[in-house]
């Protein structure tokens, strides 16, 4: 029964090897989906490219459904996995900072790594910035961030249980929301692409709506 490594069913060397393999597939999927193209990433915020929303929500919902079913069948104990503890204040503040970074920098850490690996110079510079930010955070942690980072502690909170509904129902609602967002973002994208230059369309790997 999973997860295997936290229960010491597989050893740490094998675990790290699996990490490498998962990374390869992860990197492949990100690149193949177009996440190394910074214009595609930014496109979600301006409506001309819905790829990020499509990939992101499909992935999250597929995993959410699969994990709940596997948990029910006893194949995996989700509570033994990396289950994020909620600290809502720093996560919201940090999220806002990341949101600004997303718009200004045009990447997130994972996609920038893929982009840098495939020869995007701006992504290399972006990664340099990320390290600057992390070093800055480490150096100023005690004086600036330690209180904020530990505030709003809620433990390992499940959003469905927090809302007072069942996990399955929450996932179902999210899937409806997901489908609705696909529809809306597709319409938004179509409204842009229908009078976009062919050059831009090629760069984004998009087609005009038929």
């Amino acid at each position: 029964m999973g997860p295997l490594y936290p229960q010491e069913i597989i050893n740490s060397e094998f675990n790290i090897l699996i990490g490498l393999f998962i990374g390869v597939v992860f990197g492949f999927l990100l690149e193949a989906s177009g996440f190394t193209n910074t214009r595609k990433l930014a496109g979600v915020f301006y409506g001309y490219d819905a790829t990020v929303i499509k990939v992101f929500f499909t992935a999250a919902m597929t995993a959410a459904i699969g994990l709940l079913i596997m948990h029910y069948l006893g194949w995996i104990d989700v509570k033994l996995t990396f289950y994020p503890k909620t600290f809502w204040i720093p996560t919201l503040v940090g999220g806002a900072i990341m949101g600004a970074g997303f718009i200004i920098g045009g990447f997130c850490p994972g996609t920038s790594l893929c982009a840098a690996a495939t020869g995007k110079i701006d992504a290399v510079v972006f990664i340099g910035g990320v390290f600057l930010g992390i070093f800055g955070f480490i150096f100023t942690y005690d004086s600036l961030f330690s209180g904020l980072r530990m505030s709003g502690k809620m433990g390992e909170t499940d959003i469905a249980q927090w809302l007072g509904i069942s996990d399955g129902l929450f996932i179902f609602i999210m899937i409806i929301v997901t489908f609705a967002s696909f529809f809306v973002f597709q319409k938004w994208q179509d409204s842009h692409t229908k009078d976009m230059d062919q050059r831009d369309l090629n760069e984004l790997g998009l087609k005009k709506p038929e």
């Binding site: 940090g94 990341m98 920098g105 045009g106 992504a123 972006f126 340099g128």
Partner: peptide, 14 residues
Amino acid sequence: AVIGGILWGIGTQL
């Protein structure tokens, strides 16, 4: 890109 990176560096740790 470098500004965005710095923001991500701080935001992810926070």
